[in-house]
């Protein structure tokens, strides 16, 4: 295995900065509330120390195609 990921099924998670988040949202023309969510107490969010309101960028690889997926960190 090349990657040092925790598990095969867990893609790389990363908290992105506010400016990056804003430009990403602008490029899609949506608000944070349109994003899929991830709970603050999700094991991956915990590991990154993400706080509610952060945006997590996920490098997904689906059926050979890689793309970025975003989740908005929310309280339970």
């Amino acid at each position: 295995m090349l990657s040092k990921r925790e598990h095969e099924l867990v893609p790389t998670h990363k908290v992105i900065s506010h400016s990056d988040a804003n430009s990403m949202l602008a490029s899609f023309g949506i608000s944070v509330y349109n994003l899929p969510k991830i709970l603050v107490d999700d094991p991956q969010a915990k590991k990154l120390g993400a706080k509610a309101g952060d945006i997590i960028e996920i490098e997904r690889e689906d059926f050979g195609k890689s793309y970025k997926y975003y989740r908005h960190v929310v309280e339970r």
Binding site: E6, H7, L9, V10, I38, L39
Partner: peptide, 15 residues
């Protein structure tokens, strides 16, 4: 899977 590895891993398992 969701408990141990989180929502993304659960999604992948589901797929």
């Amino acid at each position: 899977t969701y408990r141990v590895f989180g929502i993304e891993a659960a999604r992948n398992t589901l797929v």
